[in-house]
Design a protein around this nucleic acid. Structure first.
Lengths: 208, 208
DNA sequence: GCCCAGGTTGGACGACACGTCTAAGCTAGT
DNA sequence: ACTAGCTTAGACGTGTCGTCCAACCTGGGC
């Protein structure tokens, strides 16, 4: 299925498909409202008339970038979730690959984040996020429960926790930066998610 | 400190301050770009010229709404976190009050979410979120570690996990809806966060 | 080499929206 | 009665989006 057809009027030539990616930084820096078509033309090297030859308008260019980002995440995280291993190992891989994706796709990821909060979006971000991000997590949790590597009473809550933790950590990384490597953060996050932060009425608690 | 002065040109009369809140739904439904001043005038009952008498422009009206929402959250969550109790009890209260806030402030909460992803915002949302949301969580975790009601090795990671879980759960509630009460979701979330989802090499794991 | 269809593009243009400004009427205090 | 500030409609200038036209380029077919 050629999903880009909903945002582009016609298939994009290869070099134009490459260059349009440069629009992501402009949108991320300015937001849809303050981004001018002239800005996009300058940043991408694609003349205005050519942009309108391929896209119905500014918002469709943004939608194209978001759809493409969701597809990339779907491919990446499905692959990470599908590699052999216990549910726990797959979950660890998902958390790490997701944070690495965020680290490597800062502008487009912030666009996705902003768009999730916007009702009038041309892209069904919520559906895309469910497919690309939450389904692999859910699968790993379910399989982990089955293979004994995880203990999950409430898969829905656990899915929200894992995704939420990655999202906030990723956004902090993008907005604030950090000396900690994303891989280290992934390990720390997963450690706390697995161990929990509760205490049980036991004389001594062993570290796992 | 009158924080609204950075977004309003002059203090707002009481009835105007009330009516401007109605703009939140318009912004949430349409986004900044597609929201027209005329839309805002219609929804709030405040004429265009009056809006410009009090605000420098459309974006400042949005900024006003966001700042006010952050202040409300700061008040609400600081209070929830400051009530007497163990760290664990305060954390439970914070999670519940936060979700309840989301339930009662859908439009403005989605605006905050969208704005966090937008670089060109007039409001330092990241700073506002840290003050309003993450600080109370951090405090509760720290105190829980001290009073023995919680066991937290990595407070930064745990803070991201708690806030992220609430955020995703709240957004799901807003976007998808649910039959589950927010209070129930809060309880479920906290349960999983406290227990963790890992397994430890023990013959039997007690439920807490 | 010629022809043709489609791609590429600059720039003119109409429509729309933001924000500014003016002026008129209202309100409350003196 | 006067005055200052509030409230507001509507005219206006400017900027931007998106449409359209026309000219040039490119590649394939004959």
């Amino acid at each position: 299925m050629n999903q880009q057809s909903t945002n582009a009027i016609r298939p994009l030539p290869d070099d134009l498909a490459e260059r349009i990616d440069l629009a992501a930084q402009v949108f991320a820096d300015n937001g849809l409202d303050a981004t001018r078509i002239e800005h996009l033309a300058k940043a991408t090297g694609i003349p205005r008339a050519t942009l309108y030859y391929y896209f119905p308008g500014k918002e469709h260019i943004l939608a194209h970038l978001l759809s493409r980002t969701l597809r990339q995440m779907t491919v990446k995280l499905s692959a990470a979730g599908a590699e052999p291993g216990t549910g726990r190992e797959r979950l660890a891989r998902l958390v790490r690959e997701h944070l690495v994706f965020i680290g490597g796709h800062g502008p487009t990821y912030r666009l996705l984040f902003a768009e999730l909060g916007r009702a009038a979006s041309l892209v069904d971000i919520a559906a895309g996020v469910d497919l690309a991000i939450m389904s692999p997590i859910r699968e790993a949790l379910r399989d982990g429960q089955r293979d004994g590597s995880l203990h999950v009473d409430d898969i829905g809550a656990a899915t929200s926790i894992v995704y939420g933790a990655v999202l906030i950590t990723g956004m902090q990384h993008l907005l604030i930066g950090s000396d900690r490597q994303l891989e280290d953060r992934a390990t720390a996050l997963l450690g706390v998610i697995l161990s929990g932060i509760g205490t049980t009425p036991k004389p001594r608690r062993g570290r796992s």
